[in-house]
């Protein structure tokens, strides 16, 4: 019964996004365009450098990595991420939800997941064109299990991603605007997720540091799993790291939410 409430919110959000489909399509399209630039840079590096393999990646593997990472990020890393939550808090939209038998946090989660799925479906056409164009130059998943891992870890990434932006967005309880920190978060994410270049290309010290951060789940980890570059032990470690991050994010969220509710002034109404 409780779940039905959030399924309904998901459905309504879906309908609402249908009204904005062109804007969302263009945002996805823009993201993919960026990815194509990265693909072009790597293609040039392989052509003019004499190397057949860079940091363990052959040219087809690298293109697959960059394109795959680009697809994931195109529906995960949306530019206006967190705006809804921040606005609800600052402009008082949260009040209407607080007066109803429904959890505002799960409401926001349902809306965010809807947005991610919606963007994914809207991007399908663009992805299809690109994969058709690159057909023959891409590497298939090493196994069915690898394909499953890609999907599974992308789902975990979606939750981590929501959680991180949630934490920065509910800072709105204390600050008038929160887009500054969220923009910073996005910039760090661009690099630390491994969308531009696989994290294994970084010097050992940096790699160790980036491995401690949760951003690697937004591109690097899912694509390495797809390419079969992780051992069983590594997969287990990555899974536990993801779970640990979710727990940390969840605990911080609970504390912040409770404190935030005490200072919430429901302004704007």
């Amino acid at each position: 019964m409780q779940l039905r409430k959030y399924v309904s919110i998901f459905k309504l959000t879906w309908q609402q996004y249908l009204a904005y489909r062109l804007n969302l399509f263009l945002e996805v399209f823009g993201g993919i365009f960026q990815t194509l630039i990265t693909v072009a840079v790597w293609t040039l590096l392989f052509r003019f450098g004499s190397a057949q393999v860079i940091a363990g990646f052959s040219q087809p593997e690298m293109i697959t990595y960059v394109l795959g990472g680009g697809v994931i990020s195109s529906f995960l890393l949306l530019h206006r991420q967190g705006d809804d939550i921040s606005d609800d808090i600052n402009k008082g939209g949260l009040s209407a939800w607080l007066a109803k038998p429904v959890s505002p946090n799960l409401m926001w989660l349902a809306k965010d997941m809807c947005r991610k799925y919606f963007t994914f479906f809207i991007g399908l056409f663009a992805y299809a064109v690109i994969f058709w164009f690159f057909a023959g130059r891409l590497v298939p998943p090493v196994s069915v299990f690898a394909a499953f891992l890609l999907l599974f870890f992308t789902l975990l990434a979606a939750l981590i991603h929501f959680g991180l932006f949630y934490i920065f967005s509910i800072m709105a309880f204390w600050f008038d605007q929160t887009w500054g920190p969220r923009t910073l978060l996005r910039v760090i994410m661009e690099l630390a997720s491994g969308i531009l270049l696989p994290l294994s290309l970084f010097p050992a010290g940096w790699l160790q540091f980036l491995n401690l951060l949760p951003f690697k789940f937004f591109a690097y980890v899912p694509m390495q799993l797809y390419l079969g570059n992780f051992s069983a032990t590594e997969i287990a470690i990555e899974f536990l790291t993801a779970v640990a991050w979710l727990l940390i994010i969840f605990s911080v969220s609970v504390v912040l939410w409770r404190r935030g509710m005490k200072v919430y002034s429901a302004s704007g109404i």
């Binding site: 309904s8 309504l12 309908q15 609402q16 009204a19 009040s95 209407a96 109803k100 038998p101 429904v102």
Partner: peptide, 21 residues
Amino acid sequence: KNQLWWDLPAMETFLLNQTIY
């Protein structure tokens, strides 16, 4: 401050309220 979903017909909000309540 409205609770109705801006881009959707009011009926959709009513149905959502049916599940919420």
